[in-house]
């Protein structure tokens, strides 16, 4: 069986599959975890770190996305490395330098043992096109935001098997939906496993999930094209680029309001002010800490936001 490589954030999955490896986004196990890790800042990194240290994650090695993304991951990834896990560090360029990113991709390919199957590039490119079509369905009120989110969030590792994942995409229910307001969800994904369902319970239709859309937006079929696409990974680059991208999507998706999810002890929380200055929409900021079903505090905020968008506007 192919080696399974843990990834801590977005690492071009087409390249990993082309190298004959199976990526496993270690974040995907976090929302369903019930652990309360000690020595934690952000629960996302603390939980996958503990799982690696306790042998609870079935991975052969780890790629830590450090540069341009998350310093908590950089530290917790090193703890995994010190425990004996073969670990590689992948850095995005803050300034979008294509050559730099290409050299990072080359190093990654060396760590993964070289490209073995170039067909994976087109296979995954087709899946991403399918993902974008699915994303459009919810924009056009033909699919539930919760169903689409569950599918799109898995584009970071294609659930470990592109063929089966393709079938999962086909099986996402197509259904006309009713709602009171259209909202965008920006920031890191919520650690609450039922966030989208909870929002839907209050009539909020999530028509944009910022991070999963990055998974779909970027791609390529060679080191050059991957480098010139992934250099735009918005979470790793300057905020002004990210704001511009969000503004375009909010307009295109005709949203009524924006929910900014923040994670306790995550530096992205500091971005809230900037979004409030530059996004001309009602904004609700919520924060999560440990992975648990939606709390009453979260429900009150979502319900009040739905009322604000519906009744008060």
């Amino acid at each position: 069986m192919n080696d399974t490589i843990g990834i801590t954030a977005l690492v071009p999955p087409e390249l990993m599959y082309a190298c004959g490896k199976r990526p496993l986004d270690v974040n995907n196990v976090v929302p369903v975890s019930s652990s309360s890790p000690s020595n934690k800042l952000c629960a996302w990194t603390a939980i996958w770190r503990d799982m690696i240290l306790n042998g609870g994650l079935d991975i052969d090695s780890l790629v830590v996305v450090a540069g341009g993304d998350c310093h908590n991951a950089l530290v917790d990834g090193q703890k995994a490395e010190l425990s004996g896990m073969p670990t590689h560090y992948f850095f995005y360029p803050f300034d979008g330098d294509t050559d730099y990113l290409r050299s990072q991709l080359e190093k990654l390919v060396r760590f993964l043992g070289g490209i073995q199957d170039e067909r994976m590039f087109s296979l995954i490119s087709d899946l991403k096109a399918k993902g974008r079509a699915l994303d459009e369905l919810r924009v056009n009120d033909r699919a539930r935001g919760s169903d689409v989110f569950s599918a799109l969030i898995s584009f970071s590792d294609l659930a470990g098997n592109p063929d089966i994942f393709g079938k999962t995409l086909d099986s996402v229910p197509r259904t006309d939906i009713r709602y009171s307001s259209r909202v965008a969800l920006i920031g890191v994904p919520p650690i609450y496993p039922d966030f989208h369902e909870t929002a839907e319970g209050f009539g909020l239709h999530v028509v944009y999930d910022e991070l999963p859309y990055e998974f779909l937006r970027l791609g390529g079929s060679s080191l050059d094209s991957l480098a010139s696409s992934y250099r735009d990974y918005s979470f790793a680059g300057p905020l002004k680029n990210r704001v511009r991208l969000i503004q375009d999507e909010l307009l295109r998706r005709r949203v009524d309001g924006v929910i900014h999810y923040t994670q306790y002890a995550c530096h992205h929380t500091l971005e809230d002010e900037i979004f409030r200055q530059h996004l001309d929409y009602p904004i609700l900021t919520v924060q999560g800490d440990l992975p648990r079903p939606s709390t009453e505090q979260l429900k009150l905020r979502l319900e009040a936001f739905a009322e604000m968008l519906g009744v008060m506007s």
């Binding site: 009602p282 904004i283 609700l284 900021t285 505090q297 009150l300 905020r301 009040a304 936001f305 604000m308 968008l309 008060m312 506007s313």
Partner: peptide
């Protein structure tokens, strides 16, 4: 904030 229909809660 009634101007922007936004709110914050400290709990």
């Amino acid at each position: 904030d009634l101007r922007s229909n936004t709110f914050v809660i400290n709990d």
